[in-house]
Amino acid sequence: MASSASPIVIGRVVSVTEKMRIGSGAMLHSHYSPLSVAEQLGTLETSLPGRIDLGLGRAPGTDQYSANVLRHRVAGEPVFDARLEELIAYLYGTGTATKNGSFSIHAIPGEKKMCQFGC
């Protein structure tokens, strides 16, 4: 099943199955903030432990105009690798801090939910 709202479809499919692992084939990482990916998939994993898989896509997934509408770009925005590192920090539970270090940001309930390879 394909959709532009992966977490919603994943939740629906998991709700009508009992044992299958369900996941996003390629959730387009450029369209979502790392924090929202960690929180959305972490919420699903919290509700249905061991049944949610996260697959990330790197391509814009559409034409450039649509990609810009989906995720507005700002000057100096981190590239894919930096965004992926941020997502991993949320999923592994270390979180990130603001640039001046005054506030620590964590994905709740995403922390330590989606990292099955050594959390």
Results as ranks from 00 to 15, higher is better:
113 K>C: 12
28 L>A: 03
52 I>P: 02
28 L>M: 09
52 I>R: 05
36 S>L: 13
27 M>F: 00
39 E>Q: 15
19 K>F: 09
61 G>K: 04
39 E>M: 14
114 M>P: 05
84 L>V: 05
108 I>L: 13
53 D>H: 09
83 R>C: 05
98 T>Y: 03
47 S>R: 14
18 E>T: 07
76 G>H: 00
45 E>T: 12
44 L>S: 11
115 C>A: 14
18 E>S: 08
7 P>V: 00
119 C>L: 09
87 L>E: 02
55 G>R: 03
34 P>I: 08
51 R>C: 07
6 S>Q: 04
20 M>V: 15
51 R>D: 06
38 A>N: 11
53 D>R: 07
17 T>W: 02
117 F>N: 15
58 R>F: 07
19 K>R: 15
22 I>K: 04
47 S>G: 14
24 S>R: 00
23 G>H: 02
35 L>V: 09
41 L>G: 08
53 D>T: 08
82 A>F: 02
96 T>C: 03
66 S>T: 15
71 R>K: 12
62 T>C: 06
58 R>A: 06
63 D>I: 02
57 G>R: 03
91 L>T: 01
46 T>N: 11
111 E>I: 02
13 V>Q: 00
27 M>P: 00
107 A>F: 09
118 G>I: 10
22 I>C: 04
27 M>E: 03
68 N>L: 10
107 A>I: 09
61 G>D: 02
45 E>C: 10
82 A>G: 05
31 H>C: 05
77 E>Q: 14
111 E>D: 11
9 V>P: 00
6 S>K: 00
81 D>K: 05
13 V>N: 01
70 L>S: 10
106 H>V: 13
20 M>A: 15
54 L>Y: 09
14 V>I: 10
36 S>N: 10
18 E>V: 02
110 G>A: 07
48 L>C: 13
41 L>H: 15
42 G>N: 11
39 E>I: 15
18 E>H: 07
39 E>L: 08
74 V>I: 11
58 R>G: 04
27 M>G: 01
80 F>H: 14
3 S>A: 03
45 E>S: 13
114 M>E: 03
46 T>P: 00
62 T>G: 04
38 A>S: 13
59 A>N: 06
8 I>F: 06
86 E>N: 04
73 R>T: 06
61 G>L: 03
40 Q>W: 03
82 A>T: 10
9 V>T: 10
87 L>C: 04
70 L>R: 13
19 K>D: 14
111 E>Q: 14
41 L>R: 07
109 P>I: 13
44 L>V: 11
70 L>T: 05
113 K>L: 13
95 G>L: 04
36 S>G: 00
21 R>M: 12
25 G>W: 01
102 S>H: 13
56 L>W: 02
45 E>I: 11
81 D>G: 05
83 R>K: 13
49 P>D: 12
6 S>W: 01
37 V>P: 11
13 V>F: 01
